[in-house]
Design a protein around this nucleic acid. Structure first.
Lengths: 309, 309
DNA sequence: CAACCGCGATAAGTTCTACTCATGCTTGAC
DNA sequence: GTCAAGCATGAGTAGAACTTATCGCGGTTG
């Protein structure tokens, strides 16, 4: 393989017209240049330079090598520039995944902020629940994920979690439900209700289940859906009641009512997730930082219904 | 500047998925790979590789480097291929110059032969007399020239000449000229004639002049032209007589006659000219060889008028 | 003409780099 | 716990890439 260092020397020789001058601009001695060119000619088995009394001139082969050298050196410079851009958040990409309710609550302001601070980083976001996004993170398909779990102290092998906020769940009832008139309903009041739940693979499922068990009954499941807008719809239609996390209540139908369960409130916990291992790309670090800010702001400006809890 | 050797190692690591495997295919030890990658990371100030228990995965920066590495290595391969092509006459170019009469006599068969043997070499040919073509050769504008001179032993500083053939000059007379009836006219018979000559800068000028001086007179110049077809026209029109070299007589008007001057015949000598200095490109060497063949064939098949000399 | 530049080549010596070898540490599998 | 597979690291070595010093060549200049 041709040696790029040597090609660079040849290019300088071509540019300067003599070994000595090239040595000068390269901060080499003339001897080094002579040896490098000689080595390059030996390796290629070609005469690259015509030595004259007053300096040198390239042969056709030499010119060909210089042409390629120019292209290669340019490409090397590009590579360096790209690395700097990635490190300085003036380039590169950030591939993220979020679960749905954060996708319509926390992520929009976070992405807006990121875009404003680092407009040249290419962002992509997909929707997937933790049971999908964590494997994607581990396999390198994505760089960052928003996840949630039942416990605030979570530990996932190979993944570094950053705690963002607690997301309380609220009871959702049809507007004409008897309990809707009650300020502070209890879970025990709902033993006979039909329930609308998320899919069994979701941690929310466990959370609700555990809450009802704590209240002394095994809830009856009328319907399963992961889409909180749909769940609101089913509740409004009288199919059943449900527990929906605060982040899933960015918009609330007016034919349903939201009630806090007080200290019975099940709480899920939201985390930033990135690959563990000491290294964290600048883009991931920036996004984790921004999401922490957004989460903090979110907690400060919690809607009234949260305060009611 | 990024080190291409190291980039190549990184590329192999990316390809193989582990340092060990990359070392295997590169015939290195695992240690060498580890050190090279570490050095690359140190130089770029970036983490390029995520080390896991089971092998490694590239970071975004690492992938960027590999992308550039691919391009650069491809370009290096191209460069090598081009050098081989030039050396093996499967590419490259040959820029030539010839004086006019050889351009319509020796060069066409030579170029045809070259194109047949080495169709991938790009050929270009310009018309210029030795006083132009030799400087062009020295300055590198052309790689090869056909030249002529008054003496068969010629020496031009910095130029390597290869003798091709002797080009005798013939007396050209109007068909109705009194001397046209004579089988073997003498120069002395032409003392009173008007002459049509090439330009004074041309060696032919000296050649004719010297010949006439040898016959004891200073010839009278009626007209100057370097174009032998034009000269033939002027002779036919009765403007004067001329001496035209054999190579300028590839086509002869039928209203003029050609006569040999026997042992008084002035002779110019034709050479291949290439830059001196030990190195000669494959294309130049091939063309010199071919022109020697063409010249030899030309001498063997000399037209009858030459034999009459 | 002699002396002298300016240029490239070359020999010898030094420094640095890129390897290998040997070994240690971490992690995941059984 | 043990093992295997993987990367890291320290020490040592061979070779590459420089520098220094010197030579030879060709052109220029006093």
């Amino acid at each position: 393989m041709l040696d790029v260092r040597r090609m660079r020397v040849l290019r300088e020789v071509a540019l300067q017209g003599s070994f000595s001058a090239a040595a000068e601009t390269l901060s080499f001695t003339q001897s080094a240049v002579s040896q490098q060119i000689a080595a390059l000619e030996r390796e290629t088995g070609t005469v690259l330079v015509q030595r004259n009394a007053r300096g040198v001139r390239l042969t056709e082969a030499g010119e060909a090598v210089v042409r390629h050298a120019e292209a290669i050196l340019a490409r090397l410079a590009e590579a360096e520039a790209e690395l700097e851009a990635i490190a300085g958040l003036r380039g590169g990409r950030l591939r993220m995944a979020t679960f749905e309710s954060a996708g319509s609550s926390l992520m929009p302001p976070a992405i807006a902020c990121f875009r404003e601070r680092h407009p040249q980083v290419e962002l992509s976001l997909s929707l997937s629940d933790p049971e999908d996004s964590i494997p994607q993170l581990k396999s390198g398909e994505i760089d960052f994920a928003l996840t949630f779990a039942a416990s605030p102290k979570q530990d996932i092998e190979g993944v570094e979690l950053t705690y963002l906020l607690a997301d309380p769940m609220y009871l959702v009832l049809p507007a004409d439900h008897p309990l809707a008139r009650k300020r502070h309903p209890r879970l025990a009041d709902l033993a006979e209700e039909a329930w609308i739940w998320g899919s069994p693979s979701c941690d929310c499922y466990r959370l609700i289940s555990r809450a009802c068990m704590g209240a002394g009954y095994d809830p009856r499941i009328a319907f399963e859906s992961d889409d909180y807008a749909a769940v609101q719809g089913f509740v409004a239609a009288g199919v059943g009641v449900s527990l929906i996390p605060e982040l899933g209540l960015t918009s609330v139908r007016d034919d349903i009512v939201i009630r806090s369960l007080g200290r019975e409130t099940p709480i899920r916990h939201i985390f930033s997730a990135a690959l563990a291992g000491g290294y964290r790309s600048a883009a991931v670090a920036a996004m984790v930082e921004i999401l922490s800010e957004v989460a903090e702001r979110h907690c400060e400006q919690r809607p009234a219904l949260a305060l009611a809890a």
